[in-house]
């Protein structure tokens, strides 16, 4: 393109100005205040002493309580992301490729669950998997079981809850990139002698990777930062790092520790984004060579 000379191109920065200004005012500055708090000392509930000391950071490094939570969070985020990718890719492919004319309806249906409040949606799994839930009712009616099965408040229900909330993000992201692929490419590959599976694998799948990657990133990051779902659907052992942050800030009113923990989470999830950004960069490069 013209103007790709050695001089610094100002156009991208113009386009980025509104976004970066908002981010600076609403995220970067507030989080700097929070960073300062991580060096303060919490004396009593909601009472902090202004200081510059590292006891909160030391506690984070020394205390196994936090390490277990980090491990649990990463593990669960990976599980949810993989399951969401597996569950979400095929429906996205179906929506993108279907000849069904009311495609927008399928998309709208995906968003629909969001119109019912998140809390109510999450609680409604109790109506399905609970002792007097729909599934137990159905099984008993069919005579498969005598007493209700206990299915609620386990890691499985937490995963189900997460999948239900995050799956639409995955599907829509994948769909959007699948939909952008030239419809003639796959048939073209077929005429060159590729089997449908080969055509998909060699043509469609690579081209849809940006969407899949964006979906995975969102699901991973959103799971990693949650705390409400395990609180509602989990048992005593189901918690994430976000729960520790919420406990520190809201129940212990210990902002310094809450700040320390938040920054830890921010850095961990930020690393994931950097990896994603690199991957997307590579992906664009490989496209240029095709």
């Amino acid at each position: 393109m013209r103007g790709s000379g050695p001089a610094i191109d100002t156009r991208p920065w113009l386009l980025l100005t509104p976004a970066l200004l908002s981010i600076a005012a609403l995220v970067v500055v507030p989080m700097s205040f929070i960073l300062v708090y991580s060096f303060y000392e919490n004396i009593d509930l909601a009472v902090d002493r202004v200081a510059f000391q590292f006891s909160n950071w030391r506690e984070l490094l020394d205390d196994n309580y936090y390490h277990v939570a980090i491990w649990k969070t990463l593990r669960l985020s990976v599980i949810v992301t993989v399951l969401a990718a597996v569950l979400g890719y095929i429906p996205a492919y179906f929506i993108a490729m279907t000849k069904f004319r009311q495609r927008w309806l399928l998309l709208l249906l995906l968003i629909l669950p969001f119109w019912v409040s998140f809390i109510i949606r999450t609680l409604s799994w109790i109506h399905i998997l609970g002792n007097q839930g729909a599934l137990n009712g159905l099984f008993q009616w069919l005579g498969l079981i005598d007493a209700p099965l206990s299915m609620m408040y386990s890691e499985t229900t937490v995963i189900i809850g997460f999948l239900h909330v995050f799956l639409p993000y995955m599907i829509l992201n994948v769909y959007v990139s699948l939909d952008g692929i030239d419809d003639n490419l796959e048939p073209a590959a077929r005429t060159l002698g590729a089997t449908p599976w080969q055509a998909f694998r060699e043509v469609t799948l690579p081209l849809s990777l940006p969407g899949l990657a964006a979906g995975c990133l969102l699901v991973f990051v959103l799971t990693g930062g949650s705390y409400v779902t395990p609180l509602i659907l989990g048992g005593p052992n189901d918690y994430l790092f976000g729960n520790l942050i919420h406990d520190a800030v809201v129940s212990e009113l210990n902002w310094p520790m809450g700040a320390t923990l938040s920054f830890t989470l921010l850095v961990l999830l930020g690393l994931v984004v950097v990896i994603y950004s690199r991957f997307m960069g590579l992906n664009q490069l490989s496209k240029a060579f095709r």
């Binding site: 509930l45 052992n237 520790l244 129940s251």
Partner: peptide, 17 residues
């Protein structure tokens, strides 16, 4: 006066500590 301490203690016990 004990609230900070026992809240912290309970948050750990609750999560398996």
């Amino acid at each position: 006066p004990l609230e900070k301490e026992y809240t912290k203690a309970w948050n750990r016990v609750a999560k398996g500590g």
